[in-house]
Amino acid sequence: MNDLPLLTATKLSRSFFFNRGLFNSKQRIVKAVDDVTFALGRSETLALVGESGSGKSTTGRLALGMMKPTSGVVRYESQDLSKLHGTAWRRSRRNMQMIFQDSSSALDPRMTVGAQIEEVISVHGLADKKHSSRDLMMDALDRVGLGGADLRYPRELSGGQRQRIAIARALAMQAKLIVCDEPVSALDVSVQAQIVNLLVEMQEKFGLSYLFISHDLRVVRHISHRVAVMYLGRIVEMARTFEIFENPLHPYTRALLAAVPAIDSRNRHSSRTPLIEGELPDPASPPSGCRFQTRCPLVHDICRQVEPALADAGGDHTVACHMTGLSENGGSQ
């Protein structure tokens, strides 16, 4: 068994530059992702959670090479994605697919779903003498429970069925890594469960790895093996899913858990953890010290002055918080 991670991101950062106004030439810099490091194992699901604007989706796009980092490195099977070109890049990119929140935007309304899956099979040369592109397409649709839907158009399908098509397309391309960007947030609760269960089933059958981006902690608890909590572009806590839900260390993580009623009754921290007040600070002008200090109920002077480093709490649990006693000195993540 290969113990090397399928995907690693090292000190990953991405900045965006905007003009401040029509008559102001000075640029405004927004660090959407700032010094993020993580690894994704084979057949593993790592969830990225946090409020909107925390940098989750940008991190997902950087992981797939859909967006170039300002700094840092993304390696897929130990290969630096920025160094791959031509055939090597296409092969790696084929193995890394994405499922979007809005499934309809990822499908061509003018083509049947069968034709769209056949097209990607043909482009990547996956068919052979034994298995035609149509055979592979029909097999992929059968696996997601949509056999016989190949002649239907995206508009004729429900939201849940369109997400199944996205999964089928990834299976047809023999993907190893799938970035799921809020894949069930637009679906009814019953349909959400069906799609999540399908993702789990496909992972068990084909050894898929998921980078699962979500704000729904109930879904995350069911599907993920590990969780990384992001706040204002940085990872502030990362641990196995059980640890995050039963022993959250960062005040932000505790507040996120306390805000979910279904989890509130089971989490021992929620009854004494206040909900988060206020909104995310301006990412172009983050607070000094800890980025969460403007909203943290445990804030002290050191939090306003020194940015906590992501420190080891034991048992593959890391956290960036002065109040845990784990990070005595400031530093970058």
Rank of each mutant, 00 (worst) to 15 (best):
N2Y: 01
I235N: 01
G145W: 12
V33A: 03
E44L: 06
K68E: 15
G65N: 04
D188I: 11
G331K: 04
A140P: 00
G325H: 13
I276L: 05
F38I: 11
K56I: 04
K205Y: 04
S105A: 15
A47T: 10
A170P: 12
L7Y: 07
I223W: 00
D188Y: 07
S288W: 14
F23A: 02
A309C: 10
P154Q: 09
H85I: 06
F16M: 01
R134K: 08
S13Y: 03
V33G: 01
A39W: 11
Y76I: 14
P308Q: 02
H300Y: 12
R91I: 08
Y76W: 05
L326G: 10
M202A: 02
R91S: 04
P69S: 12
Q27P: 09
H215W: 12
P283M: 09
S71T: 14
S71N: 04
I117S: 03
D181L: 05
V123G: 03
I167L: 13
R164K: 09
H225A: 15
V191F: 12
V200S: 15
S13V: 05
I178P: 15
R155P: 06
A259T: 03
S271A: 09
D108Q: 02
L81W: 03
Q27M: 08
R221C: 14
S214V: 03
A149L: 02
I263Y: 06
R143S: 11
V196H: 03
L217N: 11
S103Q: 08
V73Y: 08
L6G: 11
L217C: 07
E119K: 01
P183S: 08
R28D: 10
E328Q: 12
A140V: 07
S133V: 10
V113T: 01
S190D: 11
Q97S: 10
D282P: 15
N329R: 15
G125F: 00
Q27A: 13
